[in-house]
């Protein structure tokens, strides 16, 4: 999996490309955390438009980032969530701490 990100003020837009599993999530979380720390990120928008596969390791990875930003009242946004991923997010109760939007620009309007 590859990760592409851009920072807009205190907001980080993270786009995953490929498959998110236990093996892959180990490396991306370090990469995201260093940006959260160095750029003083408050809100994170995760873009799933190019994710081919995700299992519950992705839930752990998202919740871990939520814990990094919740102290500064930061929020997590999930965009371009399709079929199976939506099921996994619903089953795991992720929508109680993260909000779903259709597109990155819709999420950026409300951050």
């Amino acid at each position: 999996m590859k990760l592409v990100y851009k920072c807009i003020g205190k907001n980080m837009v993270v786009k995953f490309i490929g498959e998110i599993d236990h093996h892959q999530s180990k490396t991306v979380r370090e990469e995201i955390d260093s940006v959260i720390y160095n750029d003083n990120i408050k809100n994170i928008i995760f873009d799933f438009s190019n994710v081919d596969f995700m299992d519950s390791s992705g839930i752990g990875m998202i919740l871990g980032r939520y814990k990094k930003v919740e102290d500064k009242d930061g929020k997590i946004f999930l965009v371009n969530v399709r079929g199976n991923l939506d099921d996994i997010f619903k089953i795991s109760g992720l929508y109680s701490v993260a909000q779903k939007y259709n597109t990155v620009s819709e999420a950026l309007e409300v951050v």
């Binding site: 999530s25 299992d55 752990g60 990875m61 871990g64 089953i91 795991s92």
Partner: peptide, 21 residues
């Protein structure tokens, strides 16, 4: 759901719940 012995490794404890679903 949400039971894990490894929360420090960012395990959500949702594996079996997802398998069941």
């Amino acid at each position: 759901p949400a039971y894990t012995t490894k929360p420090e490794s960012e395990r959500a404890g949702m594996g079996f719940t997802i398998m069941q679903s």
